[in-house]
């Protein structure tokens, strides 16, 4: 209740900073530790896939809808996946209604880039007929409670949504009409690689991962690194913080290591839904 304040007091800032310097955080974590993830999939019956993911106090519910449309001319045999994020004013007194702002666009863009460059979505399998009909997937994230680090939470929620997807399968019959086979494309058809995005905050010269709300509001900036099993697929530095080259190298290495651990712990493939 009313814990979210626009101006954070000087003593809270000093308190968090002094403890970070001693490798200690107010919620009991060490600097390189995630808060707990909780994942529920297929929570929205109207959607073709959905996930309700919480990371600490941050909660994002995302859902998948589809349309069949024409492919882009330069990729005639590839489906399309677009992402959108909305920071609902219900989620925090810091969020205001209205058209998407920088923060929500950044959230969607960072996750989108991580997924796009990791060969996560098998776009070629989302093609029904070359040059004519492909699936257009809409992956929309709605932030239900803002407790810091929406990017990592959103990233997991997008992956869980795609894995739990069940999109009706369409084919062209002999008369060149699109018909539905009654079968569904599931996560195995859509998802190939699982890129995890890992965010680090920076206050003064201290770097730590998965900032909670107060830490995020106090941060000078942050860096989000998307990783697959052994590759880096996107990096986004945001805020006014600056990072040294050595720091970036260290963070890239850390990200791969943490990504591996997270991949094992979350075991997202367990959320695959086989729909007859």
């Amino acid at each position: 209740m009313m814990n979210v304040k626009r101006v954070i007091s000087a003593i809270e800032r000093d308190y968090i900073l002094n403890n970070l310097k001693k490798d200690k955080r107010i919620d009991g974590r060490d600097l390189w530790e995630y808060r707990d993830f909780h994942i529920n999939v297929d929570v929205v019956k109207s959607a073709e896939g959905s996930a309700d993911v919480t990371l600490g106090d941050t909660r994002i519910i995302s859902g998948l809808k589809y349309e069949v449309g024409e492919p882009f001319p330069d990729t005639p045999d590839e489906g399309v996946c677009t992402m959108m994020a909305e920071l609902l004013p219900l989620a925090s007194p810091l969020f205001e209604g209205g058209p998407p702002n920088e923060q929500s666009i950044e959230l969607a863009r960072v996750i989108d880039r991580g997924i796009r460059h990791a060969d996560c979505i098998q776009t070629k399998k989302l093609c029904i007929r070359e040059n004519k009909a492909v699936y257009i997937l809409f992956l929309d994230m709605f932030v239900m409670n803002y407790g810091g680090n929406m990017i990592d939470c959103g990233g997991v929620s997008c992956l869980a949504t795609l894995i739990s997807a069940h999109v009706p399968e369409g084919v062209f019959n002999d008369e060149n009409e699109l018909i539905w086979t009654g079968k569904y494309l599931n996560g195995k058809h859509i998802v190939n690689e699982l890129p995890f995005v890992i965010t680090f905050g920076k206050i003064d010269d201290i770097i730590f991962m998965d900032p909670n709300l107060t830490e995020e509001l106090l941060s000078d900036g942050s860096i989000s690194i998307s990783v697959t099993e052994n590759k880096i697929t996107s990096i986004q530095k945001s805020g006014s913080a600056t990072f040294s080259i050595d720091e970036i190298k260290m963070l890239c290495e850390k990200s791969i290591e943490i990504g591996k651990k997270l991949r094992k712990e979350l075991d997202l493939w367990q959320y695959l839904i086989q729909k007859a």
Binding site: N3, S9, I11, E12, D14, Y15, I26
Partner: peptide
């Protein structure tokens, strides 16, 4: 003025 420590909010 309060120096040091931290603050929390409850109902």
């Amino acid at each position: 003025k309060k120096m040091g420590g931290t603050i929390i909010s409850i109902g």
